[in-house]
């Protein structure tokens, strides 16, 4: 009897010691993994937006069954703190603005001069999903881990499984493929809240001002099979707007060229 109690006590002490010593060790390994993924995402982001704040001129071409359906132009102003202001520049949408502050969204229609608070669902349903245009970085919004390596279109890649850290991200889960050599984004599988694959994004690099940048992002729609979208990044400038411009009440003013 005494022997059994002694054995049980030894087992309990061993388990406690494992917990006390093992959890921090495990935590350290996970923290190192997190830091590695964050560093990879930061490098990948630099190929899309190599500045903290700026203005990105974007042309979005939507295709239906491979035939060009529409072309839309947007000017996107980005600021740290998940702030982006999208100005719609195509003739049919002139005067429309969309403001995104973290998980909150507003749409301004020129016919009413009234900023409308809209839901994440309404934002997603907009033409060419302005979320795709206004989101230029992953590092601030996603955490994850490396889950393997794969070769995509002949490019050896690291495979990252990313999970959104904010409610308002357009895609709660992304499987991202970064080139092993320089960590530029090659492909991303974009999943909606139901964990269905919504779109497959492919990234095309070009040389802009002497450095490699993503110049085209092609989105192949998996929910509406005949649809695809090309997002062409026409220019990136480090123009910074004051905080006033990211106030919903400011949208009624016309201080910016449309």
């Amino acid at each position: 009897m005494f022997k059994r109690i002694a054995l049980l006590s030894l087992a309990a002490i061993s388990l406690a010691a494992l917990c006390i010593l093992g959890i921090p060790l495990c935590g350290q390994v996970m923290a190192a993994e997190d830091a590695k993924v964050k560093a990879l995402l930061k490098q990948a982001d630099a190929y899309r937006l190599a500045m903290e704040s700026g203005r990105v001129e974007t042309e979005v071409r939507t295709f239906r069954a491979g035939v060009l359906d529409k072309t839309r132009l947007y000017a996107v102003y980005l600021k740290p703190g998940h702030r982006s202001l999208v100005l719609f520049r195509t003739a049919t949408e002139r005067g429309q603005k969309m403001l995104m502050l973290g998980d909150d969204y507003w749409l301004m229609m020129p016919s009413s001069q009234r900023p409308l608070r809209i839901t994440a669902m309404q934002k997603l349903l907009g033409e060419a999903s302005t979320g795709d245009v206004a989101t230029m970085t992953w590092g601030e919004d996603y955490d994850g881990r490396q889950v393997g390596e794969e070769t995509i279109d002949g490019v050896p890649c690291l495979k990252l499984d990313l999970v959104g850290q904010r409610k308002g991200v357009s895609y709660p889960r992304i499987v991202l493929y970064l080139a092993k050599k320089d960590h530029h984004p090659v492909q991303a599988e974009l999943y909606v809240a139901s964990d269905k694959l919504a779109k497959l994004a492919r990234f095309q690099l070009g040389t802009v001002d002497g450095r490699k940048q993503v110049t085209v992002m092609t989105l192949i729609d998996h929910l509406q099979k005949e649809r695809s979208t090309e997002v062409h990044y026409l220019s990136r400038t480090d123009k910074t707007l004051s905080d006033d411009y990211f106030n919903p009440a400011f949208l009624v003013r016309a201080d910016l060229t449309q």
């Binding site: 909150d104 608070r117 809209i118 839901t119 994440a120 669902m121 309404q122 409610k167 809240a193």
Partner: peptide, 10 residues
């Protein structure tokens, strides 16, 4: 007042 309590509701 206007509020968005969920992704789908305003």
């Amino acid at each position: 007042a206007s509020m968005v309590p969920s992704d789908a509701l305003e």
